[in-house]
């Protein structure tokens, strides 16, 4: 971070934009290529795909939405599966917002900032925002997160059109992008017993429950395997105290 002068809002904003073009932002944009391709291959329009990235902007929930919709799940199941996948945004918002709030900050700015809490934006902001002077934090966060958001929207559009323009093996690879990306993120983050158990149980139950009932399968996988993992960590002193908030999975 460069040293900021009074009135250096533009400079702060540009620093946020520059940060967004680092490795995490580029990986994020690439992962949205996969989402755009998935949207096309699920026979949804580019407008639906773009609206999803604009309004939801949390990749795991978006992929869950498209996949549950594609298997013909009811609206209730889609809503519950997306809500559970994205409920992790609540603790993330709770931990980030105190760093952005100052006396006199209008509430609408904070509620708008809430929309920009997603894993990549959150993880990098938690690292950088506390190092900034208080008056620069909100400006930096908005410029950083909104740039990531715009990159994600662009990635969605490019992925959609690429999937229709490239040879079939490349389209396959693009659709393959999200499962591989999530897989590496999930296993790269296996440090706690409850989440490890939840992950293994989920990986086993996911296909099994899907074969039994494609509509409810994914939702039940999350609830059953997640509760099993959670129970596996109960009664073990220190688990809650060492629990990390960040789920590094999108």
């Amino acid at each position: 971070m460069s040293a900021e002068r009074p009135g250096g809002r533009l400079r702060t904003g540009l620093a946020g934009v520059r940060e967004a073009f680092g490795a995490p932002g580029l990986i994020l944009a690439a992962s949205f290529l996969g989402f755009g391709s998935l949207v096309r291959e699920s026979d949804l329009s580019v407008w639906v795909g773009l609206a999803t990235t604009v309004l939801v902007w949390a990749l795991p929930g978006q992929v869950v939405m498209v996949e549950t919709y594609a298997v013909g799940a009811s609206l209730l199941v889609v809503a519950a599966a997306v809500a559970l996948t994205n409920a992790r945004l609540l603790p993330m918002t709770v931990t980030l917002l105190p760093w952005l709030r100052r006396p006199g900050t209008p509430a609408w700015k904070l509620y708008l900032a809430g929309h920009f809490v997603a894993v990549t934006a959150w993880a990098n902001s938690m690292r950088i925002v506390p190092t900034l002077p208080e008056h620069q934090r909100l400006v930096w966060f908005f410029s950083f997160a909104a740039t990531l958001w715009l990159m994600s929207i662009a990635g969605t559009a490019v992925g959609f059109f690429l999937a229709g323009a490239v040879p079939q093996p490349v389209t396959l690879a693009l659709v393959f992008l999200n499962p591989v990306y999530f897989l590496l993120l999930l296993i790269g983050d296996l440090t706690q017993r409850p989440r490890t158990v939840a992950l293994v149980a989920g990986a086993v139950l996911g296909p099994v429950f899907h074969l039994i009932d494609p509509d409810w399968g994914l939702l039940l996988t999350g609830l059953v395997a997640g509760t099993v993992g959670f129970a596996a960590g109960r009664g073990r002193p220190g688990t809650a105290a060492t629990a990390r908030v960040e789920p590094a999975d999108d």
Binding site: A198, G206, L218, T221, G222, V224, A225, G233, D249
Partner: peptide, 10 residues
Amino acid sequence: CVAYALLAGL
């Protein structure tokens, strides 16, 4: 845990 399991299942 539920979010992890759901995503792993997917």
